[in-house]
């Protein structure tokens, strides 16, 4: 079926099977492998992308459901090699170890930061409960977000 969407500022048009999930479209057809799959059960958040500015689990969305939408993946955060504030803060706070959860966290956090709202630690902990990290114990991730809200 015919599908048109905008990914990281570029138009993409193609024919996709009805059962193709958005994450597989991004990873396999567009070769944007920064979006990871950690569960395909909607829990771990590793597959989080922004669809029209809203954080969405790309493992639970069919590609066709994104028809006409604008999508941002982790690859959009440092377009010309210049790390975004949150990426730089992640490195500074050592908020990643294996890095597998990181793209999902970055996209969830980008949505929060883009909203312009400021949240305290407890609020952030609740708001990031859709992303799982097994390596870091989360503390440095929260530190990085708090720094970027300043």
């Amino acid at each position: 079926m015919e599908l048109t969407l905008n990914v990281n500022g570029r138009e993409w048009r193609g024919d996709v099977p009805g059962r193709l999930i958005l994450a597989d479209l991004l990873r396999d057809r567009l070769h944007l492998t920064g979006t990871h799959l950690g569960c395909e059960q909607g829990v771990c958040g590793a597959c989080t992308v922004l669809v029209d500015g809203e954080a969405v689990r790309s493992c639970l969305m069919l590609a066709l459901q994104a028809d006409g939408c604008s999508i941002r993946t982790v690859e959009s955060l440092a377009p010309d090699g210049q790390l975004s504030r949150i990426q730089a803060a992640f490195l500074r706070h050592r908020a990643l170890q294996c890095g597998f959860c990181t793209p999902g966290f970055l996209m969830s956090i980008t949505e929060l930061l883009d909203s312009g709202q400021r949240y305290n630690r407890e609020e952030l902990a609740e708001m990031l409960s859709g992303n799982v990290c097994r390596c870091t114990g989360y503390e440095p991730i929260l530190d990085a977000v708090l720094e970027c809200q300043d």
């Binding site: 492998t33 920064g34 993946t73 982790v74 690859e75 990426q87 990643l96 890095g99 990181t102």
Partner: peptide
């Protein structure tokens, strides 16, 4: 390495193409 991972340019098993 960390920079690769943080920009989505890691090469985990599922990212390899053959």
């Amino acid at each position: 390495n960390s920079r690769l991972l943080i920009t989505g340019n890691g090469s985990y098993l599922a990212d390899l193409e053959f």
